[in-house]
Design a protein around this nucleic acid. Sequence first.
RNA 1: GGUCCGUUCGUCUAGGGGUUAGGACACCAGAUUUUCAUUCUGGUAACACGGGUUCGAUUCCCGUACGGACUACCA
Length: 511
Amino acid sequence: MKDVRVRFAPSPTGALHIGGVRTALYNYLLARQTGGTMILRIEDTDQTRYVPGAEEYIVRSLAWVGITIDEGVGVGGPHAPYRQSERKEIYAKYAKQLIDNGHAYYAFDTEDELEQMRERLKAAGVDQQQYNSITRMQMRNSLTLSEQEVKTLMEAGTPYVIRLKVPRKEEVRLNDLIRGWVMVHSSQIDDKVLMKSDGMPTYHLANVVDDYLMKITHVIRGEEWLPSAPLHVLLYKFLDWEEVMPQFAHLPLLLKPSGDGKLSKRDADQMGFPIFPLDWNDPTTNEKAVGYRESGYLPDALVNFLAFLGWNPGTTQEIFSMDELIKAFSIERIGKAGARFDIQKAQWFNQQYLKSKSNEELAIYLIDILNAAGVDCSQEKAIKISSIMKDRITFPKDMWEQAKFLFFTPTTFDQSVADKKWNADAVTVISAYRDSLSKLAHFDANIAKETLETVTASVGIGAGKILQALRLSITGAGAGPDLMMVMEIIGQQEVVKRLDFALQTLKVKVA
RNA sequence: GGUCCGUUCGUCUAGGGGUUAGGACACCAGAUUUUCAUUCUGGUAACACGGGUUCGAUUCCCGUACGGACUACCA
């Protein structure tokens, strides 16, 4: 195989969608596996949809998930510029070439005229209302107008577009890497606009020209492009680039959790999960969206999850680092059917990745979170907290949110637990335990435990019977991480203080 | 409507002419845990339908149904 060159080519119309991240990932995996080149190209040919900050957002998002770019916007390269708006003249040149070769033509039809044509066809019961080999002969273009008329119109500054002259009868074939041969009859393809009246190319022309000039070998993109792929094949042919045409791989779509339709921001909002990799403030609507990063997803976990949405290695291994993905990836093993987006699976991956981290690593996350919450914490203490919370969390922030009692003395107690477990025995043991603890010269989890055993033995009440009451008095809740470690983290004095408080507050019909 | 693509447990999927149709998530149950969580064990659960081809189809072929994408001077 020639040197693989792939590209990710988003348009900067907003934040990068999670589906786009997956597309970028598959491109990246193929590039890295083959020692090829990963290119980032920005498809900003629609000036009306340009959103400030979107391009930068895309670059930052890719960097966050660990997709590095070899060539393109932000890094440069031999085929610069990589922003299509800066390549206007290039497309114009090839459009002109197509016209000279009789494969394209100028069209002067106004929006109203196009609308009228569609209405007319619809009224006549024609299946497809398109600008094609038949209808173009009834429109105002350089095929129906005389050379002189065309010249006059253009000199008068009449707006015009350039359209592809799609042949009337031709079988267009394309061998998709994922779907096999796809055949479409040219009569089904309309005379797509190649150059818009503002002098910018449309996606179709720009993408073919750039892929050719940038020597792209594999076009890996979403399935929504499949219907227009035959058009692109036609373009390669008319430009005489057929032999170097890239291979196509149209990825199955990421579907809503309900399964009906492409995953959209709306669905994500409704179901309460992120759709963008990073936080995004839309400058046009002023809407704020929370990203995967800010929600507490680890980039490795997100990547692992995304990679498995539409692809699998054929083994039972589920956890893959980026390097392992690079080794295992293959286009052949990409599925054909759309994959529903299941956020629960993403959470499971996140949990797995979190669990595989060392306490020291987790402590770093925790300290960040605590700082943001304005809470002080030593590294030593953060490491201990990480160790007891590690197996109970899905997101780093859980270490804080589920363990606030480590920092604040509880002021209330879970009533249902109190009702069930706070009884005379509990009061007896806890009172005695409080007294023993207060006299200790040294204190840690082990000592706390030994002391409890001694106390329960001496009063003849099983530790199991009162442990939940003890937990309640220390944490305010009936469930939580290892209680002895909790006591060690809180410290002797604080524990005694809390026991006093609980004994006073929960005082029960002890007698 | 037209064109194209698709269809294995609820979800992601493996598999493939003869299998107890495998795994993972989720769910349920049991064990461990002083609790919850983790972990372990077990369980419920799938080849859309109809024809063909075949000794035999979930697997191959053809239809049907259903779903999706596309159908702009948007990408």
